[in-house]
């Protein structure tokens, strides 16, 4: 029997999850090891975002289990097919997040808080691809960055990197 844990979202929704799935989060793993995880585990993550976190963790868990059960025969072909499946799943996951940027950024913060390096890295790449073509003003707004250059300084530095502003 798999050991189950109950995770409680910030808006008080309960998620029943297998230990193996949720242990991918270093934060929760530590809580379990320290014995702090009795009963419900309260998390500062909304139910909408937590559902996405668990979707990711289950997919990753699925992948690890299958690899463990593999024998070496025909592994290459199988691996290739699996890679295609994962790619497809990841593309769908990305598309959903791109359509709802609030969830994307919430998930970014959650993956940091729950210490899920693979998810964090995946999301950082996703955000990087989204912002690569943007102008500084849009980035400042997006990340709450204060422009502390004087107008003269900004003009000079923009001129120095003028080529980077061309399409």
């Amino acid at each position: 029997m798999a050991i189950m844990y109950a995770l409680k979202s910030s808006d008080n929704e309960i998620f029943e999850v297998e230990q193996k799935v949720i242990e991918q989060s270093e934060t929760i793993k530590k809580m379990i090891e320290d014995g702090a995880a009795t009963g419900e585990i309260p998390l500062q993550v909304s139910s909408k975002t937590l559902a996405k976190v668990l979707e990711w963790c289950k997919q990753r868990q699925h992948k690890t289990v299958e690899n463990e059960n593999d024998d070496n025969k025909g592994k290459r072909k199988k691996e290739r097919d699996e890679d295609d499946d994962i790619k497809e799943w990841e593309n769908k996951f990305s598309d959903e997040l791109k359509a709802d940027k609030d969830v994307l950024f919430d998930l970014l913060l959650a993956s940091n808080y729950l210490d899920l390096p693979a998810l964090l890295s995946f999301l950082c790449q996703l955000v990087a691809d989204m912002v690569a073509g943007k102008m500084p003003e849009e980035i400042r707004r997006m990340f709450n960055i204060e422009n502390d250059f004087t107008p003269e300084e900004e003009k000079a530095i923009t001129a120095e990197h003028g080529w980077a502003f061309q399409p």
Binding site: S121, C124, A128, V131, P136, F149, I157, H161, A164
Partner: peptide, 19 residues
């Protein structure tokens, strides 16, 4: 982390963000 995955051209443009 996000910036470390950006193309060089984007980063040169983002030098103008702040000091």
């Amino acid at each position: 982390d996000i910036f470390s995955k950006l193309p060089v051209k984007s980063l040169c443009r983002f030098k103008c963000l702040s000091k």
